[in-house]
Amino acid sequence: MPVLRSTLLIDAPIRTVAAAVRDVSVVRATGPLAQCTARGDLLCVGDELSFQVPLVPGVRVPMRTKIVRADDSGISSELASTDQLVRRLRHDITLAETGAGTLVTDSVRWLSPWGPIGSAADVLLMRRFVLKLLQRRGNAVRSRVLSLGRAPVVVAAAIVHKGHLLAQQRSYPEHLAGRWELPGGRVEAGETDEAALIRECVEELGARVTVGARFGPDVPLPKGYLMRAYAATLADGDAVPEALEHLAVEWVPVERLAELDWLDPDIALLPELHALLTETL
């Protein structure tokens, strides 16, 4: 199969770059995106993208791909169906931490269905299209990383206790009331992420937490904010968190994670939350 690949080095943490490569705005800046099924700003496994691929001048052919991997190490997609312009297609963005920043390797491979004619089409059409796509995506990723690096930070706590995750139900604003989210809030000037999480959990739940390791990608939020997620446990195992600012709090087992109507940004963390809970069982 033909393979085209590009690399770039970005002076930013891998989680921020992981957010950029999954960002729907980056996908839109890359090429003629017709439709995307993502609920939030980040692509998740199972999301589908519809593109318009230029076949000849003035003629565009639709193509659909599905996200099959999306995590801190990058993102991958494949054809959503086989009845398309090419027989096979695989797109991989792989991230690696280095001493100079995050190395981004972007590769696209495909298989045309037309034999020798398809090989000629690869040279004249697909290769040209993919090369432009790789260049535009690299520029868009770099630009998005810069904007995310300047964003004010919101922190979220994945509080795990006895194999359950604490979720809280929003009471406001009206259009978000009833949906679920992780506890947390904005990091104030002079605060560390950990101090902000401890303060927010006391304010929202009336309980202190012990903050653990970060997990998952950075998650873009509305109004230019950026969310970082941390694992956490109750500082006092006998404490009973209360819904001081929310409609309700609930301890959710791993098998019910997908049942809750999570806020869109929290949906991007569900695979990592599932893994976090599974590790404690």
Rank of each mutant, 00 (worst) to 15 (best):
W110F: 07
R127W: 01
D236Q: 11
L244Q: 08
A275P: 11
E259K: 13
L270W: 00
V26S: 07
G206K: 04
G101C: 06
I14Q: 00
L134E: 03
L131C: 15
A177E: 02
G74F: 00
S143T: 09
G216A: 04
S25H: 10
V130P: 14
R28N: 12
F215E: 04
T210D: 11
R186K: 14
G118W: 03
A38R: 02
V202L: 14
Q84V: 05
V108N: 15
R179A: 14
S107V: 13
D41V: 12
V240Y: 05
D23I: 09
A243E: 11
V160P: 10
A20N: 01
T30W: 04
A29K: 10
S143A: 15
V145R: 04
W251C: 09
E200L: 13
A207R: 02
A207F: 00
P241W: 02
K132I: 09
A20E: 00
A29R: 09
T102K: 00
P222K: 05
M63H: 06
V252G: 13
P253A: 07
L148E: 02
R69P: 08
F215P: 15
V209H: 03
A156I: 09
V24G: 14
A248G: 08
R109C: 15
E174R: 13
V86G: 05
A38K: 02
R60T: 12
L42K: 08
A38I: 00
P265C: 08
L165Q: 06
V17T: 04
L273R: 09
S107R: 15
M63R: 10
W114L: 13
T7F: 07
P2V: 04
R87V: 12
D261Y: 01
L260Y: 09
L270T: 03
M63W: 03
E259I: 08
G178D: 03
R170Q: 10
D11A: 15
H274I: 05
D92Y: 06
D23A: 14
M1G: 15
V24E: 09
L257I: 12
A268V: 08
A158F: 00
S77L: 05
D106I: 05
K223H: 14
R109E: 14
L260R: 12
E204T: 14
A157I: 01
L273N: 06
D23W: 02
Q84D: 07
V53Q: 08
L131W: 07
G178C: 06
D41Y: 11
A70Y: 03
L257R: 11
A189D: 13
L111C: 14
D11P: 04
A70R: 05
G99C: 04
V104N: 06
A248N: 08
L49W: 02
G101Y: 00
G115D: 06
G184K: 03
P116I: 03
V26D: 02
G149Q: 06
T37W: 00
G74E: 01
A96I: 00
A20S: 04
W262H: 11
Q135S: 15
A235H: 11
A268Y: 03
A29H: 04
L42D: 03
L55E: 06
L165W: 03
V56S: 13
T280I: 02
V145I: 05
E48V: 15
Y230W: 04
L9W: 01
A29Y: 01
T7I: 04
F51E: 07
T94M: 07
H175F: 08
A157S: 09
D106V: 08
A189I: 10
L133N: 13
L33G: 13
